[in-house]
Nucleic acid binder design. Structure first.
Length: 664
DNA sequence: ATAGTGGTAGTTTTT
DNA sequence: CTACCACTAT
């Protein structure tokens, strides 16, 4: 063991300290200030909802740069890339354009760029392909069939379940056997097959330069753990690290953080245990409390003054979280005491719930709240279907975030598959998609063709030379396409070639709804036009696919901003003047699928996240009569999270329909 | 080996 | 409602 030399830190002279352009002391409260001006060593900032967490991070970035630190040596890991971009944009406004040069993004996007550069050390070429969840399931399905597991007497779990299990094992750092015992005891019979399948899956990907979401993190950790030189290099490059939303990171991500900070320990984690809502991705709200164990000597800063919401709103959110089984760490308070009482609105039916929301939004707009400052939040994407129709009738323009992803529709995946094999000819997942589109080609023939093209360098040439006459015409057309695409430089032009080839196939397969699908492809073309390399396009489609879908009335009123409809998960970190939470009914929220103890606790935190999005007005509604498919009309019960709240906190509002006759 | 049909079970949240 | 399975006809 080498003795580590003791360090003596030279402080910046006070003359230098006076020269900061930003008045940090004046613009931040004491706790925020402490988090902003301390740059050396590990910090944990426990920041309640609306306590200026983002503000703190933004000012800290500015402060670091103003202190003379190279922007590129700062790494800001956030939950979405959008969040990182937003923060850096704000920092740039605050200070100057240097802030744009800060490295920022999600764990996954950071892993992606790092592995493209240094992945060779863990067996990855720079052109690896990222599999999304659907692709991963396709592979699992294939392997399951190969092993005859689909034909067993005792039914083997569905591909989605298999994917869940394998992914959970990785993200929770738990061996499959233990995981089955604790979470899937009914599948213990299949333990051996599942283990074999998991390892076959890993080999399959490794052999073809395929990487799923979990692999991005797994390989990055492996790289950092096994390759000392790379770890030291990366750690020295990223001398100042910040991790946002730490409560939603998992053990694998914690490992990565620990390794990345190994050279300097300059790491600030920011989060709120009460807002941990991603356990299905392996996050555990206790992880954030483990941070000081990961980094001995961690200083903890707690932000408790809420700047977002009025006290009446906070009283409700505090009451919601007070019902949690485990105590959380903070009690929020606000200086904004004025404001209307939050309301709970039982509506006779779902249709009336939608009408109530629309009508109240119209009133809010007349009272001067722009649509862009109003949001409707829900547990699950489909809860908003009825409301979407009603909003269209009321001509209220909206964006919907979360839920449906056009990237996952079959036709978009088909088109992208053609681009993907250009980038990585070993991408058999995409080859399979492409080949199955051809007339008379099924799984067997695809398999044969893929084997055939693998054994030669020029794919197009091999396709044309495939010996079975039956497929010659189709394969020649495909080969021609590949050649034309290769001649194009811009992703947009490449995609145009592909669509010219793919359109007839699409028309044939989906004669009925062809126009609708064609519109999605036009959308894809518009997106592709924003990119100048194929790789960048494909990476973004995998890691940050477009999730906003815009309501149809958009065209009529582009200027006045859009109302936001959002799942609560996608609303994380955002805020609005007025927030509606719909479908706050037992069975929907909490969802029927989340009735186990741990799950219920997370559902409660989810309700907390939803309610804390509101600055001033909060409306919680649920239908009394619910039409349940297959069952008929049932009585809706208010969500347990709001039912127990005192009427002084959450004032009940009764819906009365205007009667038709005016006689009386 | 593939394509088409008919019946049935499952139906959240996201990188 | 749709994705998935089993089955049948080509």
């Amino acid at each position: 063991m080498q003795p580590t030399p003791e360090k003596y830190v030279l402080r910046r002279s006070s003359a230098r300290r006076e020269s900061f352009r930003i008045d940090y002391r004046g613009e931040l409260n004491a706790a925020q200030y402490e988090a902003v001006v301390n740059s050396e060593g590990p910090f944990l900032v426990v920041a309640g909802a609306g306590t200026g967490k983002t503000r703190t991070l933004v000012y800290r970035v500015a402060r670091l740069i103003e202190s003379g630190i190279e922007p590129t040596s700062i790494l800001l890991l956030t939950f979405t890339r959008k969040a990182a971009g937003e923060m850096l944009r704000r920092a740039s406004l605050l200070l100057d354009g240097r802030c744009d040069r800060v490295a920022g993004g999600t764990f996954h996007s950071f892993a992606n760029t790092t592995l493209r550069r240094f992945g060779r050390n863990v067996g990855l070429e720079s052109n690896f392909t990222i599999l999304d969840r659907g692709d991963a399931e396709d592979v699992l399905n294939l392997l399951r069939a190969d092993r005859g597991l689909d034909r067993k007497e005792r039914r083997f779990p569905r591909k989605q379940t298999i994917g869940d299990i394998i992914s959970a094992g990785i993200n929770r750092n738990t061996p499959l056997g233990a995981l089955l015992e604790s979470d899937y005891p009914h599948l213990l019979d299949h333990e051996e097959d599942l283990l074999a399948l998991a390892s076959a899956y890993a080999t399959y990907k490794q052999d073809r330069q395929l990487v799923d979401y979990d692999d991005l993190l797994l390989k990055l950790r492996q790289l950092l753990a096994e390759n000392q030189a790379t770890r030291q290099h990366l750690s020295s490059v990223h001398r100042y690290m910040m991790v946002d939303e730490y409560q939603d990171t998992n053990l694998l991500q914690a490992d990565i953080v620990r390794l990345l900070a190994s050279e300097h320990q300059n790491i600030m984690a920011v989060g709120d245990d009460a807002q941990s809502i991603y356990s299905f991705r392996g996050a555990n709200f206790r992880n954030i409390m483990d941070f000081p164990n990961l980094f001995p000597g961690t200083r903890i800063i707690v932000l408790e003054e809420n700047y977002r919401s009025t006290q009446p709103v906070l009283d409700v959110t505090n009451a919601i979280i007070a019902g949690a089984r485990e105590r959380h760490t903070k009690h929020l308070f606000s200086k904004r005491s004025d404001g209307p009482s939050p309301l709970v609105i039982p509506t006779p039916t779902e249709a009336l719930q939608s009408r109530f929301v629309c009508q109240r939004i119209l009133e809010l707009r007349e009272e001067g709240t722009p649509l862009s400052d109003i949001a409707v939040l829900f547990r699950s994407s489909f809860h908003a279907f009825d409301l979407e129709l009603e909003l269209t009738r009321y001509e209220l323009p909206f964006v919907k975030r979360g839920g449906f992803k056009f990237i996952e529709t079959a036709h978009v995946k088909d088109a992208l598959a053609h681009l993907r094999v250009i980038n990585n000819p070993q991408d058999t997942v995409s080859w399979l998609r492409i080949l199955l589109l051809l007339d008379g080609v099924g799984p067997r023939a695809s398999e044969e063709i893929m084997r055939w093209i693998k054994s030669g360098p020029d794919v197009a040439q091999r396709l044309e030379a495939f010996p079975r006459r039956r497929f010659t015409l189709a394969l020649q057309a495909l080969a021609g396409l590949l050649r034309r695409v290769h001649q194009q430089r811009e992703p947009e032009a490449q995609l145009e070639e592909i669509l010219r080839y793919y359109e007839p196939l699409l028309k044939q397969a989906h004669a009925d709804d062809y126009p609708k699908r064609r519109k999605d492809l036009d959308q894809l073309l518009t997106i592709a036009a924003r990119y100048h390399t194929l790789e960048a396009l494909l990476v973004d489609m995998a890691l940050e696919p477009p999730t906003d879908s815009v309501g149809e009335v958009l065209a009529t009123s582009p200027d006045e901003g859009l109302l936001t409809l959002s799942t609560i998960h996608s609303a994380k970190g955002l805020e609005w003047q007025a927030v509606f939470i719909i479908w706050a009914a037992e069975g929907r929220f909490p969802s029927t699928y989340s009735m186990r103890d741990d799950d219920i606790e997370e559902e409660r935190r989810l309700m907390y996240v939803a309610a804390t999005r509101a600055k001033r007005e909060l409306y919680v509604s649920y239908p009394i009569h619910i039409f349940e498919r297959g069952v008929g009309l049932v009585m809706g019960k208010p969500s347990r999270f709001i039912e127990s709240l005192a009427p002084e906190l959450l004032r009940p509002l009764t819906i009365v329909e205007e009667s038709d006759d005016w006689t009386g």
